[in-house]
Design a binder for these strands. Structure first.
Lengths: 230, 230
DNA sequence: AGTTATAATATTGTCAGACCAATTTTCAAT
DNA sequence: ATTGAAAATTGGTCTGACAATATTATAACT
Protein backbone atom coordinates (compact mmCIF):
# COMPACT_ATOMS: atom_id res chain seq x y z
CA UNK A 1 0.00 0.00 0.00
CA UNK A 2 1.56 3.21 -1.14
CA UNK A 3 0.52 6.27 0.75
CA UNK A 4 1.18 9.32 -1.36
CA UNK A 5 2.54 11.79 1.12
CA UNK A 6 1.63 15.19 -0.16
CA UNK A 7 3.98 18.08 0.35
CA UNK A 8 3.05 21.40 1.87
CA UNK A 9 3.38 23.03 -1.52
CA UNK A 10 0.79 20.69 -3.00
CA UNK A 11 -1.59 21.40 -0.15
CA UNK A 12 -1.22 25.11 -0.74
CA UNK A 13 -1.79 24.62 -4.47
CA UNK A 14 -5.06 22.83 -3.80
CA UNK A 15 -6.15 25.47 -1.31
CA UNK A 16 -5.48 28.23 -3.81
CA UNK A 17 -7.37 26.39 -6.53
CA UNK A 18 -10.35 25.96 -4.24
CA UNK A 19 -10.15 29.56 -3.18
CA UNK A 20 -10.40 30.61 -6.82
CA UNK A 21 -13.38 28.34 -7.38
CA UNK A 22 -15.23 29.29 -4.20
CA UNK A 23 -14.79 32.99 -4.76
CA UNK A 24 -15.56 32.61 -8.45
CA UNK A 25 -12.53 34.65 -9.42
CA UNK A 26 -12.45 35.58 -13.07
CA UNK A 27 -9.52 36.20 -15.42
CA UNK A 28 -7.63 39.40 -14.65
CA UNK A 29 -9.07 39.60 -11.15
CA UNK A 30 -6.45 40.56 -8.59
CA UNK A 31 -5.43 37.72 -6.34
CA UNK A 32 -3.94 37.81 -2.86
CA UNK A 33 -0.34 38.92 -2.40
CA UNK A 34 2.45 36.65 -1.25
CA UNK A 35 2.38 38.35 2.12
CA UNK A 36 -1.34 37.81 2.60
CA UNK A 37 -1.00 34.18 1.62
CA UNK A 38 1.85 33.47 4.03
CA UNK A 39 -0.17 35.03 6.84
CA UNK A 40 -3.47 33.35 6.05
CA UNK A 41 -2.02 29.92 5.27
CA UNK A 42 0.66 30.15 7.96
CA UNK A 43 3.39 28.75 5.79
CA UNK A 44 6.73 30.17 4.75
CA UNK A 45 7.07 32.49 1.81
CA UNK A 46 9.09 29.80 0.06
CA UNK A 47 6.16 27.41 0.02
CA UNK A 48 3.75 30.11 -1.10
CA UNK A 49 6.05 31.17 -3.90
CA UNK A 50 6.60 27.64 -5.15
CA UNK A 51 2.85 27.07 -5.20
CA UNK A 52 2.26 30.33 -7.06
CA UNK A 53 4.93 29.58 -9.62
CA UNK A 54 3.50 26.14 -10.14
CA UNK A 55 0.05 27.58 -10.75
CA UNK A 56 1.50 30.14 -13.10
CA UNK A 57 3.18 27.36 -15.05
CA UNK A 58 -0.14 25.67 -15.79
CA UNK A 59 -1.77 28.94 -16.74
CA UNK A 60 -3.98 29.50 -13.72
CA UNK A 61 -2.22 32.51 -12.22
CA UNK A 62 -0.25 35.39 -13.67
CA UNK A 63 2.50 36.90 -11.52
CA UNK A 64 3.44 40.51 -12.22
CA UNK A 65 6.72 41.52 -10.60
CA UNK A 66 6.02 44.35 -8.20
CA UNK A 67 2.42 44.53 -9.31
CA UNK A 68 0.76 41.60 -7.62
CA UNK A 69 -0.76 38.30 -8.64
CA UNK A 70 -3.71 37.93 -10.98
CA UNK A 71 -6.00 35.26 -12.32
CA UNK A 72 -4.76 34.28 -15.76
CA UNK A 73 -7.13 33.69 -18.61
CA UNK A 74 -6.52 30.00 -19.08
CA UNK A 75 -6.48 29.58 -22.77
CA UNK A 76 -4.45 27.54 -25.15
CA UNK A 77 -1.10 29.09 -24.36
CA UNK A 78 -0.05 26.71 -21.66
CA UNK A 79 -1.28 23.63 -23.45
CA UNK A 80 0.57 24.72 -26.53
CA UNK A 81 3.86 25.03 -24.69
CA UNK A 82 3.34 21.57 -23.28
CA UNK A 83 2.57 20.16 -26.71
CA UNK A 84 5.61 21.95 -28.08
CA UNK A 85 7.88 20.16 -25.66
CA UNK A 86 6.05 16.93 -26.31
CA UNK A 87 6.64 17.38 -30.02
CA UNK A 88 10.30 18.24 -29.56
CA UNK A 89 10.97 15.23 -27.37
CA UNK A 90 8.71 12.63 -28.91
CA UNK A 91 8.45 13.84 -32.44
CA UNK A 92 5.05 13.65 -34.03
CA UNK A 93 4.27 12.36 -37.44
CA UNK A 94 3.06 15.09 -39.76
CA UNK A 95 0.74 12.68 -41.46
CA UNK A 96 -1.10 12.14 -38.19
CA UNK A 97 -1.69 15.85 -37.71
CA UNK A 98 -2.95 16.33 -41.23
CA UNK A 99 -5.30 13.41 -40.88
CA UNK A 100 -6.67 14.99 -37.74
CA UNK A 101 -7.11 18.33 -39.47
CA UNK A 102 -9.01 16.61 -42.25
CA UNK A 103 -11.27 14.89 -39.73
CA UNK A 104 -11.90 18.22 -38.05
CA UNK A 105 -12.78 20.01 -41.27
CA UNK A 106 -15.05 17.21 -42.42
CA UNK A 107 -16.66 17.19 -39.00
CA UNK A 108 -17.23 20.92 -39.16
CA UNK A 109 -19.14 20.51 -42.39
CA UNK A 110 -21.29 17.84 -40.81
CA UNK A 111 -22.10 19.95 -37.77
CA UNK A 112 -22.91 22.97 -39.89
CA UNK A 113 -25.28 21.09 -42.16
CA UNK A 114 -26.81 18.68 -39.64
CA UNK A 115 -27.51 21.40 -37.10
CA UNK A 116 -28.51 23.92 -39.74
CA UNK A 117 -26.57 26.60 -37.93
CA UNK A 118 -26.97 30.13 -39.23
CA UNK A 119 -24.15 30.77 -41.65
CA UNK A 120 -22.98 33.92 -43.34
CA UNK A 121 -22.57 32.57 -46.85
CA UNK A 122 -21.83 35.99 -48.23
CA UNK A 123 -18.92 36.47 -45.83
CA UNK A 124 -17.41 33.14 -46.82
CA UNK A 125 -17.61 34.21 -50.44
CA UNK A 126 -15.87 37.46 -49.67
CA UNK A 127 -13.09 35.73 -47.79
CA UNK A 128 -12.59 33.41 -50.72
CA UNK A 129 -12.49 36.34 -53.14
CA UNK A 130 -9.76 37.89 -51.00
CA UNK A 131 -8.05 34.53 -51.29
CA UNK A 132 -8.30 34.67 -55.06
CA UNK A 133 -6.95 38.19 -55.12
CA UNK A 134 -4.00 37.13 -52.98
CA UNK A 135 -3.35 34.34 -55.46
CA UNK A 136 -3.31 36.60 -58.50
CA UNK A 137 -1.29 39.35 -56.83
CA UNK A 138 1.24 37.11 -55.10
CA UNK A 139 -0.27 38.13 -51.77
CA UNK A 140 -0.55 36.26 -48.50
CA UNK A 141 -2.57 33.32 -49.71
CA UNK A 142 -2.03 31.25 -46.57
CA UNK A 143 -3.64 33.96 -44.48
CA UNK A 144 -6.94 33.94 -46.33
CA UNK A 145 -6.95 30.20 -46.71
CA UNK A 146 -6.66 29.94 -42.96
CA UNK A 147 -9.39 32.51 -42.37
CA UNK A 148 -11.71 30.58 -44.65
CA UNK A 149 -11.22 27.30 -42.84
CA UNK A 150 -11.29 28.98 -39.46
CA UNK A 151 -14.63 30.55 -40.32
CA UNK A 152 -16.09 27.14 -41.05
CA UNK A 153 -14.95 25.76 -37.71
CA UNK A 154 -16.28 28.79 -35.89
CA UNK A 155 -19.61 28.42 -37.61
CA UNK A 156 -20.20 25.06 -35.94
CA UNK A 157 -21.44 26.79 -32.80
CA UNK A 158 -19.06 24.70 -30.70
CA UNK A 159 -16.38 26.69 -28.90
CA UNK A 160 -14.63 23.62 -27.50
CA UNK A 161 -14.38 22.19 -30.99
CA UNK A 162 -12.85 25.43 -32.16
CA UNK A 163 -10.38 25.49 -29.27
CA UNK A 164 -9.18 22.00 -30.05
CA UNK A 165 -8.95 22.83 -33.70
CA UNK A 166 -6.72 25.75 -32.85
CA UNK A 167 -4.53 23.56 -30.65
CA UNK A 168 -4.05 21.16 -33.52
CA UNK A 169 -3.30 24.02 -35.83
CA UNK A 170 -0.70 25.48 -33.48
CA UNK A 171 0.79 22.04 -33.08
CA UNK A 172 0.92 21.70 -36.84
CA UNK A 173 2.55 25.11 -37.14
CA UNK A 174 5.54 23.71 -35.24
CA UNK A 175 6.30 21.63 -38.27
CA UNK A 176 7.74 23.69 -41.04
CA UNK A 177 6.55 22.25 -44.24
CA UNK A 178 7.38 23.68 -47.64
CA UNK A 179 4.52 22.75 -49.85
CA UNK A 180 5.31 24.96 -52.80
CA UNK A 181 1.99 25.62 -54.42
CA UNK A 182 1.83 26.91 -57.94
CA UNK A 183 -0.78 29.29 -59.23
CA UNK A 184 -2.72 26.48 -60.82
CA UNK A 185 -3.16 24.43 -57.64
CA UNK A 186 -4.09 27.55 -55.71
CA UNK A 187 -6.81 28.38 -58.20
CA UNK A 188 -8.08 24.87 -57.79
CA UNK A 189 -8.22 25.40 -54.03
CA UNK A 190 -10.18 28.58 -54.59
CA UNK A 191 -12.71 26.74 -56.71
CA UNK A 192 -13.01 23.99 -54.13
CA UNK A 193 -13.71 26.55 -51.44
CA UNK A 194 -16.57 27.89 -53.48
CA UNK A 195 -17.82 24.43 -54.24
CA UNK A 196 -17.88 23.67 -50.53
CA UNK A 197 -19.89 26.80 -49.85
CA UNK A 198 -22.31 25.82 -52.61
CA UNK A 199 -22.76 22.38 -51.12
CA UNK A 200 -23.39 23.85 -47.67
CA UNK A 201 -25.99 26.15 -49.16
CA UNK A 202 -27.66 23.11 -50.73
CA UNK A 203 -27.41 21.10 -47.51
CA UNK A 204 -25.47 18.53 -49.48
CA UNK A 205 -23.20 17.04 -46.83
CA UNK A 206 -21.82 14.31 -49.06
CA UNK A 207 -20.81 16.74 -51.77
CA UNK A 208 -19.30 19.16 -49.27
CA UNK A 209 -17.27 16.41 -47.63
CA UNK A 210 -16.18 14.92 -50.93
CA UNK A 211 -14.89 18.30 -52.09
CA UNK A 212 -13.15 18.92 -48.78
CA UNK A 213 -11.56 15.49 -49.06
CA UNK A 214 -10.25 16.35 -52.50
CA UNK A 215 -9.07 19.64 -51.09
CA UNK A 216 -6.74 17.77 -48.77
CA UNK A 217 -5.43 15.41 -51.40
CA UNK A 218 -2.38 17.43 -52.57
CA UNK A 219 -0.90 17.67 -49.12
CA UNK A 220 -1.29 13.95 -48.56
CA UNK A 221 0.55 13.12 -51.76
CA UNK A 222 3.22 15.60 -50.75
CA UNK A 223 3.60 13.94 -47.35
CA UNK A 224 3.75 10.54 -48.95
CA UNK A 225 6.53 11.67 -51.25
CA UNK A 226 8.38 13.20 -48.33
CA UNK A 227 8.15 9.99 -46.33
CA UNK A 228 9.47 7.98 -49.24
CA UNK A 229 12.49 10.24 -49.62
CA UNK A 230 13.55 9.96 -45.99
CA UNK B 1 7.24 49.12 -27.14
CA UNK B 2 6.94 46.40 -24.56
CA UNK B 3 10.14 44.69 -23.65
CA UNK B 4 9.42 41.35 -22.09
CA UNK B 5 11.84 41.24 -19.25
CA UNK B 6 12.61 37.64 -18.56
CA UNK B 7 13.36 36.53 -15.04
CA UNK B 8 16.25 34.37 -14.00
CA UNK B 9 13.86 31.53 -13.32
CA UNK B 10 12.59 31.61 -16.90
CA UNK B 11 16.12 31.58 -18.24
CA UNK B 12 16.90 28.53 -16.14
CA UNK B 13 13.70 26.85 -17.32
CA UNK B 14 14.72 27.31 -20.94
CA UNK B 15 18.23 26.07 -20.24
CA UNK B 16 16.89 22.95 -18.59
CA UNK B 17 14.50 22.30 -21.47
CA UNK B 18 17.33 22.64 -23.96
CA UNK B 19 19.54 20.40 -21.85
CA UNK B 20 16.86 17.72 -22.00
CA UNK B 21 16.56 18.06 -25.75
CA UNK B 22 20.27 18.17 -26.47
CA UNK B 23 21.02 15.16 -24.31
CA UNK B 24 17.99 13.35 -25.62
CA UNK B 25 16.85 12.45 -22.12
CA UNK B 26 14.05 9.94 -22.03
CA UNK B 27 11.24 9.44 -19.50
CA UNK B 28 12.44 8.04 -16.18
CA UNK B 29 16.02 9.05 -16.88
CA UNK B 30 17.68 10.57 -13.84
CA UNK B 31 18.21 14.28 -14.13
CA UNK B 32 20.76 16.50 -12.41
CA UNK B 33 20.38 17.27 -8.73
CA UNK B 34 19.58 20.71 -7.34
CA UNK B 35 23.15 20.99 -6.15
CA UNK B 36 24.61 20.20 -9.55
CA UNK B 37 22.27 22.68 -11.20
CA UNK B 38 23.15 25.51 -8.83
CA UNK B 39 26.83 24.90 -9.46
CA UNK B 40 26.60 24.56 -13.22
CA UNK B 41 24.16 27.40 -13.78
CA UNK B 42 25.67 29.59 -11.08
CA UNK B 43 22.34 30.66 -9.64
CA UNK B 44 20.88 30.29 -6.20
CA UNK B 45 19.11 27.18 -5.08
CA UNK B 46 15.90 29.21 -4.86
CA UNK B 47 15.93 29.92 -8.57
CA UNK B 48 16.79 26.35 -9.44
CA UNK B 49 14.00 25.00 -7.26
CA UNK B 50 11.42 27.36 -8.70
CA UNK B 51 12.41 26.36 -12.20
CA UNK B 52 12.25 22.67 -11.32
CA UNK B 53 8.84 23.01 -9.70
CA UNK B 54 7.58 24.90 -12.70
CA UNK B 55 8.77 22.17 -15.02
CA UNK B 56 7.21 19.56 -12.80
CA UNK B 57 3.91 21.43 -12.99
CA UNK B 58 3.79 21.13 -16.75
CA UNK B 59 4.73 17.48 -16.66
CA UNK B 60 8.29 17.66 -17.89
CA UNK B 61 10.11 16.70 -14.70
CA UNK B 62 9.26 14.51 -11.75
CA UNK B 63 10.75 15.45 -8.38
CA UNK B 64 11.16 12.68 -5.84
CA UNK B 65 11.78 13.97 -2.32
CA UNK B 66 15.17 12.76 -1.21
CA UNK B 67 15.51 10.62 -4.31
CA UNK B 68 16.45 13.06 -7.02
CA UNK B 69 14.87 14.51 -10.12
CA UNK B 70 13.71 12.53 -13.11
CA UNK B 71 12.34 13.06 -16.59
CA UNK B 72 8.59 12.60 -16.46
CA UNK B 73 6.80 10.75 -19.18
CA UNK B 74 4.82 13.63 -20.60
CA UNK B 75 1.49 12.17 -21.39
CA UNK B 76 -1.99 13.46 -21.00
CA UNK B 77 -1.90 13.92 -17.25
CA UNK B 78 -0.93 17.55 -17.10
CA UNK B 79 -3.18 18.62 -19.93
CA UNK B 80 -6.05 16.89 -18.23
CA UNK B 81 -5.50 18.74 -14.98
CA UNK B 82 -5.42 22.01 -16.91
CA UNK B 83 -8.63 21.14 -18.71
CA UNK B 84 -10.16 20.11 -15.39
CA UNK B 85 -9.54 23.53 -13.94
CA UNK B 86 -10.72 25.12 -17.15
CA UNK B 87 -13.89 23.14 -16.91
CA UNK B 88 -14.45 24.00 -13.27
CA UNK B 89 -13.97 27.69 -13.84
CA UNK B 90 -15.49 28.17 -17.26
CA UNK B 91 -17.93 25.33 -17.48
CA UNK B 92 -18.16 23.48 -20.72
CA UNK B 93 -21.28 22.58 -22.58
CA UNK B 94 -21.85 18.85 -22.61
CA UNK B 95 -23.38 19.07 -26.03
CA UNK B 96 -20.12 20.41 -27.41
CA UNK B 97 -18.12 17.51 -26.02
CA UNK B 98 -20.53 14.93 -27.37
CA UNK B 99 -20.49 16.54 -30.77
CA UNK B 100 -16.72 16.32 -30.73
CA UNK B 101 -16.84 12.68 -29.72
CA UNK B 102 -19.16 11.98 -32.59
CA UNK B 103 -16.85 13.73 -35.01
CA UNK B 104 -13.95 11.69 -33.69
CA UNK B 105 -15.76 8.38 -34.02
CA UNK B 106 -16.98 9.19 -37.50
CA UNK B 107 -13.47 10.28 -38.40
CA UNK B 108 -12.04 7.05 -37.10
CA UNK B 109 -14.29 5.08 -39.39
CA UNK B 110 -13.16 7.18 -42.33
CA UNK B 111 -9.48 6.70 -41.55
CA UNK B 112 -9.91 2.98 -41.08
CA UNK B 113 -11.71 2.47 -44.34
CA UNK B 114 -9.89 5.04 -46.49
CA UNK B 115 -6.47 3.89 -45.41
CA UNK B 116 -7.45 0.23 -45.38
CA UNK B 117 -5.59 -0.30 -42.15
CA UNK B 118 -5.26 -3.86 -40.94
CA UNK B 119 -8.08 -4.49 -38.54
CA UNK B 120 -8.79 -7.41 -36.23
CA UNK B 121 -12.46 -7.88 -37.03
CA UNK B 122 -12.63 -11.00 -34.89
CA UNK B 123 -11.43 -9.10 -31.85
CA UNK B 124 -14.04 -6.40 -32.31
CA UNK B 125 -16.70 -9.10 -32.47
CA UNK B 126 -15.44 -10.65 -29.25
CA UNK B 127 -15.45 -7.31 -27.46
CA UNK B 128 -18.99 -6.75 -28.58
CA UNK B 129 -20.02 -10.21 -27.39
CA UNK B 130 -18.58 -9.36 -23.99
CA UNK B 131 -20.66 -6.23 -24.19
CA UNK B 132 -23.75 -8.29 -24.88
CA UNK B 133 -22.99 -10.59 -22.00
CA UNK B 134 -22.59 -7.61 -19.69
CA UNK B 135 -25.99 -6.39 -20.85
CA UNK B 136 -27.75 -9.64 -20.12
CA UNK B 137 -26.03 -10.24 -16.80
CA UNK B 138 -26.25 -6.70 -15.51
CA UNK B 139 -22.48 -6.41 -15.81
CA UNK B 140 -20.26 -3.45 -16.52
CA UNK B 141 -21.68 -2.46 -19.87
CA UNK B 142 -19.94 0.90 -20.00
CA UNK B 143 -16.56 -0.79 -19.75
CA UNK B 144 -17.00 -2.91 -22.86
CA UNK B 145 -18.71 -0.16 -24.78
CA UNK B 146 -15.68 2.00 -24.11
CA UNK B 147 -13.26 -0.75 -25.10
CA UNK B 148 -15.11 -1.22 -28.37
CA UNK B 149 -14.96 2.43 -29.32
CA UNK B 150 -11.40 2.75 -28.08
CA UNK B 151 -10.38 -0.14 -30.30
CA UNK B 152 -11.76 1.63 -33.32
CA UNK B 153 -9.80 4.79 -32.55
CA UNK B 154 -6.65 2.80 -31.94
CA UNK B 155 -7.08 1.01 -35.23
CA UNK B 156 -6.69 4.27 -37.17
CA UNK B 157 -2.91 3.99 -36.93
CA UNK B 158 -2.73 7.54 -35.63
CA UNK B 159 -1.38 7.86 -32.10
CA UNK B 160 -1.93 11.59 -31.90
CA UNK B 161 -5.54 11.11 -32.89
CA UNK B 162 -5.88 8.54 -30.14
CA UNK B 163 -4.27 10.84 -27.58
CA UNK B 164 -6.64 13.66 -28.38
CA UNK B 165 -9.55 11.29 -28.28
CA UNK B 166 -8.51 10.24 -24.81
CA UNK B 167 -8.21 13.85 -23.68
CA UNK B 168 -11.75 14.52 -24.86
CA UNK B 169 -12.92 11.40 -23.13
CA UNK B 170 -11.27 12.36 -19.85
CA UNK B 171 -12.73 15.80 -20.18
CA UNK B 172 -16.13 14.29 -20.79
CA UNK B 173 -15.71 12.05 -17.74
CA UNK B 174 -15.66 15.16 -15.57
CA UNK B 175 -19.30 15.63 -16.38
CA UNK B 176 -21.43 13.17 -14.52
CA UNK B 177 -24.33 12.31 -16.74
CA UNK B 178 -27.01 9.86 -15.79
CA UNK B 179 -28.24 8.43 -19.01
CA UNK B 180 -30.25 5.53 -17.66
CA UNK B 181 -30.23 2.97 -20.41
CA UNK B 182 -32.69 0.17 -20.40
CA UNK B 183 -31.99 -3.31 -21.67
CA UNK B 184 -33.71 -2.58 -24.94
CA UNK B 185 -31.60 0.41 -25.86
CA UNK B 186 -28.45 -1.42 -24.86
CA UNK B 187 -29.31 -4.30 -27.14
CA UNK B 188 -29.81 -1.81 -29.90
CA UNK B 189 -26.34 -0.43 -29.24
CA UNK B 190 -24.94 -3.94 -29.43
CA UNK B 191 -26.56 -4.46 -32.80
CA UNK B 192 -25.27 -1.15 -34.06
CA UNK B 193 -21.75 -2.10 -33.03
CA UNK B 194 -22.00 -5.23 -35.10
CA UNK B 195 -23.49 -3.32 -38.00
CA UNK B 196 -20.56 -0.93 -37.89
CA UNK B 197 -18.11 -3.81 -37.99
CA UNK B 198 -19.99 -5.28 -40.94
CA UNK B 199 -19.82 -2.01 -42.80
CA UNK B 200 -16.10 -1.71 -42.14
CA UNK B 201 -15.60 -5.21 -43.46
CA UNK B 202 -17.51 -4.22 -46.60
CA UNK B 203 -15.56 -0.96 -46.91
CA UNK B 204 -18.90 0.81 -46.80
CA UNK B 205 -17.97 4.13 -45.22
CA UNK B 206 -21.37 5.70 -45.68
CA UNK B 207 -23.16 2.83 -44.00
CA UNK B 208 -20.66 2.72 -41.16
CA UNK B 209 -20.98 6.43 -40.54
CA UNK B 210 -24.74 6.39 -40.81
CA UNK B 211 -24.94 3.64 -38.20
CA UNK B 212 -22.48 5.42 -35.93
CA UNK B 213 -24.54 8.57 -36.29
CA UNK B 214 -27.66 6.70 -35.23
CA UNK B 215 -25.63 5.22 -32.39
CA UNK B 216 -25.14 8.71 -30.99
CA UNK B 217 -28.73 9.75 -31.41
CA UNK B 218 -30.09 8.72 -27.96
CA UNK B 219 -27.54 10.78 -26.06
CA UNK B 220 -28.30 13.84 -28.16
CA UNK B 221 -32.01 13.60 -27.45
CA UNK B 222 -31.17 13.12 -23.80
CA UNK B 223 -29.02 16.25 -23.80
CA UNK B 224 -31.68 18.20 -25.60
CA UNK B 225 -34.24 17.22 -22.96
CA UNK B 226 -31.80 18.14 -20.21
CA UNK B 227 -31.19 21.55 -21.73
CA UNK B 228 -34.89 22.20 -22.00
CA UNK B 229 -35.48 21.36 -18.35
CA UNK B 230 -32.83 23.72 -17.07
C1' DA C 1 29.99 -15.18 0.52
C1' DG C 2 25.45 -13.54 0.99
C1' DT C 3 21.86 -11.36 3.68
C1' DT C 4 20.19 -8.13 6.84
C1' DA C 5 20.08 -4.41 10.06
C1' DT C 6 22.11 -0.11 11.05
C1' DA C 7 24.57 4.08 10.33
C1' DA C 8 26.23 7.62 7.25
C1' DT C 9 25.45 10.30 3.34
C1' DA C 10 22.95 12.56 -0.26
C1' DT C 11 18.86 14.88 -1.80
C1' DT C 12 14.69 17.33 -1.58
C1' DG C 13 11.33 20.16 1.71
C1' DT C 14 10.62 24.01 4.66
C1' DC C 15 11.92 27.96 7.21
C1' DA C 16 13.81 32.70 8.32
C1' DG C 17 15.87 36.91 7.10
C1' DA C 18 18.00 40.02 4.03
C1' DC C 19 18.49 42.92 -0.04
C1' DC C 20 17.31 44.04 -4.97
C1' DA C 21 14.03 45.37 -8.73
C1' DA C 22 9.67 46.71 -10.38
C1' DT C 23 5.32 48.69 -9.50
C1' DT C 24 1.98 51.29 -7.09
C1' DT C 25 0.68 54.76 -3.91
C1' DT C 26 1.31 59.02 -1.49
C1' DC C 27 1.84 63.64 -1.33
C1' DA C 28 4.06 68.00 -1.97
C1' DA C 29 5.01 71.49 -5.51
C1' DT C 30 3.27 73.77 -9.39
C1' DA D 1 -6.26 69.56 -11.11
C1' DT D 2 -1.63 67.99 -12.84
C1' DT D 3 2.79 66.66 -12.37
C1' DG D 4 6.72 64.54 -10.39
C1' DA D 5 9.50 62.94 -6.82
C1' DA D 6 9.53 60.16 -2.58
C1' DA D 7 7.78 56.36 0.04
C1' DA D 8 5.58 52.06 0.49
C1' DT D 9 4.21 47.78 -1.50
C1' DT D 10 5.16 43.64 -3.98
C1' DG D 11 7.56 40.19 -6.36
C1' DG D 12 12.80 38.33 -7.51
C1' DT D 13 17.02 36.47 -5.84
C1' DC D 14 20.43 35.17 -2.42
C1' DT D 15 22.27 32.87 1.79
C1' DG D 16 22.28 29.70 5.44
C1' DA D 17 20.15 26.50 8.33
C1' DC D 18 17.59 22.42 9.73
C1' DA D 19 14.00 18.70 8.76
C1' DA D 20 12.24 14.77 6.10
C1' DT D 21 13.07 11.32 2.88
C1' DA D 22 15.79 8.21 -0.02
C1' DT D 23 20.04 6.13 -1.15
C1' DT D 24 24.44 4.21 -0.12
C1' DA D 25 27.94 2.35 2.78
C1' DT D 26 29.08 -0.25 6.76
C1' DA D 27 28.86 -3.75 10.14
C1' DA D 28 26.94 -7.81 12.03
C1' DC D 29 25.18 -12.15 11.44
C1' DT D 30 24.24 -16.69 9.38
Amino acid sequence: MVIQKTSLVNIVIEKIKNYILENKLKPNDKFLTEKELTEQLKVSRTVVREALISLQAVGILKIKPGGGIYIADTKLGTINSILKHHYETHGVKIRELIEIRKIIELGALRLIIEKQVPLDIQQLREINESYLQAITTNGDTKKFDRIFHQSLIKATDNDTFYDFSEIIHQYFALVRIDLTENQESLIKSYKQHNEIVDAIKDNDLLHAQKTMNDHFEPIFTFIKKMEEES
